[in-house]
Design a protein around this nucleic acid. Structure first.
Lengths: 231, 231
DNA sequence: CGGTCACTTGATCGTCTTCAATACCAGTGG
DNA sequence: CCACTGGTATTGAAGACGATCAAGTGACCG
């Protein structure tokens, strides 16, 4: 019995089918920095995160890393086009999840056709997020990237019924850097600058308070003129 | 009656259902630079490209553009998570397509459940491509980006039953730049350098011949040591 | 305490952008 | 036929943004 009922994939599943879902799922826990799925590894299961935060990333042979996203409660891991996973998924903190083997999921999808629609809907939403991130990586400045990141975290906090102006970052500077396509140093300097300019407050390196959300949003959305003379 | 039979989405549709598909589809043509779907516009239809090349992009308020991908024969446009399109789709050259209204597609999916699986499969493949592009945009150098782009075009040419070493780029330098997250000038200079180094040949700005595919691939995959002293 | 690890800060460097000029090519009309 | 035009491509010079390199700080832990 796992937290599957509260998770996004299963929200649309009729109450009557939840029991059947539960029999197909298996609980699991991953410790910090434990790898849950590995890029290019054979795709044998789907995962549904029930708590904690996961980093999804791809590596280059020389070690350069691009984090393609973070997964939290309700998110879905393991969609694979070919028979192999496209990205590595690694626990940032302690992560709890439900695991569905492909074989079981197949029969499940057969029994609950709505499930497939749910998966398509999830994949499509992910695709839109990926496109947004491509815009960030290809065309935004360091300032704009960090501002966008903070606004996204703020929205996420809000969606989890928590404060939009005060939230805690589960990931370290290095994760943020590899997510935004920059270096740790530039992330630190940019955060410091936003702090000095009075847009945000940062405590204990993980604790963020958004002071001037108007300016921050304008910066994240790349609307000019948030502060004349400092382009 | 459109080229729908040859297109990827419908490949898996039983021959018997093709007729039903055809009744739901409507032919269309887009002239160069004509917009087919618009970012944030209400999503009312799906499109299946049958010939030509489409650029998919997002814009920033100040005009910066990120091309998220190119669509060609067999590709699918218009997957939308919310009720609105995520990216703009614009014809590069003359584009022919099939159009399915959402309403009709819905009944179609009801009739042909396999269709939904096909859509999910397409979306998942797109997602993997997007992740690959995020790695490129966030972590690769200009040289590596251009090499990756050329290798991708080579693979595409190959998949279309044409030469892997000689192909024609349907898009202009500006499109390549906005796809790779760089400027036109840097694209030009990088291509020139690869030409000077004997990896490729370029004629008429659109005609590419890959001379040294080993080195080019090594560069694209970011494996060091392709040419000592010129890192 | 001495160790490690993450974060922060400073100085320097290089890649890519920006700005500007020029070349090129197709189409148009004198 | 040839100037003229508009768009795309190319090349050069200068500058900026962010990366790299290096040092220092602080927290946590054995």
């Amino acid at each position: 019995m796992c937290g599957v009922r509260r998770a996004s994939i299963c929200d649309a599943v009729p109450e009557a089918d939840v029991a059947r879902l539960a029999t197909a799922a298996m609980d699991g826990v991953a410790k910090p920095n434990e790898t849950i799925i590995e890029e290019a590894g054979p795709a044998t299961a789907f995962f549904n995160v029930t708590s904690g935060t996961v980093r999804l990333y791809k590596l280059l042979p020389d070690g350069r890393r691009q984090i393609t996203g973070f997964a939290t409660m309700g998110d879905f891991l393991g969609l694979a086009a070919s028979g192999n996973y496209a990205v590595t998924a690694q626990a940032i903190d302690t992560v709890r999840y439900c695991r569905f083997s492909h074989a079981r999921l197949r029969t499940l999808i057969h029994d609950i056709p709505l499930m497939e629609r749910q998966l398509l809907s999830f994949a499509t939403a992910e695709l839109a997020t990926a496109h947004e991130q491509m815009l960030l990586l290809g065309r935004k400045s360091a300032r704009e990237r960090v501002a966008s990141f903070l606004m996204t975290r703020s929205r996420l906090s809000c969606a989890h019924r928590q404060s939009a102006t005060h939230f805690i970052l589960p990931m370290a500077r290095g994760d943020i850097a590899d997510y935004l396509g920059m270096t740790i140093e530039t992330v630190v300097r940019t955060l410091k600058k936003l702090r000095d300019e009075g847009m945000i407050e940062v405590a204990n390196t993980r604790d963020v308070i958004i002071i001037d959300s108007i300016s921050l949003r304008r910066l994240a959305d790349c609307q000019a003129g948030f502060e004349p003379g400092r382009g």
